[in-house]
Amino acid sequence: MELYPTQDGFLGEIAKGFTFAQVSRLAAGFGERARAEGIDQVVVAHDTRFLAKEMAEEAAGVLAGLGLKAFLLKGPVPLPLFAFTLGELEAAGFYLSASRKPARYQGVKLRLGPGKPLSGQEVPLPEKVPEARGNFQLLDRKRAYLEHLAGNAGQGATGKKGVVYLDTLGGAGGGLLPGVFGLLGLEAELRELHPLPHPLFYGVDPDPKPENLPTLLALMRAVEPPAVGLALDGDADRLAALLPGGEVLPPAEVLKALEEALEGKEVRGDGQGSYLFPWHLPEPDPFLAALLLLGKLL
């Protein structure tokens, strides 16, 4: 299987089309494109898939070897944190993730800046990759992102009681929402399901559809209100919401609830669980969506 260009990068099957050699080519081609655009900094990040960390280290070394100032985010990293860091540093981005695809796939999302996706068809792939590898800087911006997130969440969930189940499916979104609960002093009880990184996503596809959420569905069918169930995809840029009794809230209803919570501030939905808040980040953020929903659903 070969690498396939996507609207914002490439996709392939691990150990077939998506190999270390191909990652090196992708990084070299992207680095040259970034330099041609006058960009001198690039942030590399990765999800929880097999060998994602090691592939990210290889990409960061190639990019640094091209003379770019390369940062590797301490990971795994959800897409909103990656987007936040690009904005902070005004940098290009190289994010290893296959999002909702099954575990055997890996991909890369390319950004020429915050919210500036680069199609894979626009990236030259050199036949020969420079041998030099440069030094990159390990970066941890989780706390800064959490503070940004808490600052934009408002007070809608303050004082709300009940249980919040969050199924992260072993993806990159695990372990993040508890920190925001702490910063906001929320009283609702947060119970994370499958929060630890898992390259096989606990045996399901990392797509928050009902067929991939057996544990969350069982809990929500048995729980009494007030309670809400939430689920993320593999790179944490999509959100599903469930009500007591196991009812899955359609994306149109989620968007309506977000609009009511925001009272005029802009939110955009794509009908597939992605919610963008342009005043917050240039990429979708399911964590902000989750916090806003708690004020309406608990």
Rank of each mutant, 00 (worst) to 15 (best):
L3A: 10
P5K: 05
G12W: 04
A15R: 13
K16N: 13
F20P: 13
F20V: 11
Q22W: 00
S24E: 15
L26Y: 07
A27R: 04
G31M: 02
I39S: 13
D40A: 14
V43A: 08
V43M: 12
V44E: 05
D47A: 10
R49V: 05
M55V: 08
A60W: 00
G61T: 02
A64F: 10
G65H: 05
L68R: 09
F71G: 02
L73V: 03
P78D: 04
A83G: 09
F84G: 01
E90Q: 15
E90L: 14
A91W: 10
G93R: 03
F94N: 08
Y95W: 06
L96Q: 05
K101W: 14
A103I: 07
A103N: 07
G107F: 03
R111I: 06
G113M: 05
G115R: 01
K116H: 11
K116A: 15
S119D: 15
Q121H: 12
V129I: 08
R133V: 08
L139M: 01
D140A: 01
D140V: 08
A144M: 13
A144C: 12
A144S: 15
L146N: 12
A150Y: 02
N152Q: 14
A153G: 11
T158G: 12
G159T: 02
K160D: 02
V164A: 12
V164G: 10
D167N: 11
A172M: 08
G179F: 11
G179M: 11
V180I: 12
F181W: 13
G182D: 12
G182K: 12
E189M: 13
L190Y: 06
L200Y: 15
P206K: 04
P206T: 08
D207Q: 11
D207W: 09
P210K: 05
E211M: 06
L219T: 09
R221E: 14
V223A: 03
V228H: 00
V228P: 02
L230G: 07
L232E: 01
D233T: 07
G234W: 06
D235H: 03
L242V: 10
P244A: 00
L249F: 03
L249I: 01
K256V: 01
L258D: 01
A261E: 02
V267P: 01
V267N: 05
D270W: 08
G271N: 04
F287N: 03
L288E: 04
L293D: 01
L294H: 02
G295S: 00
L297E: 07
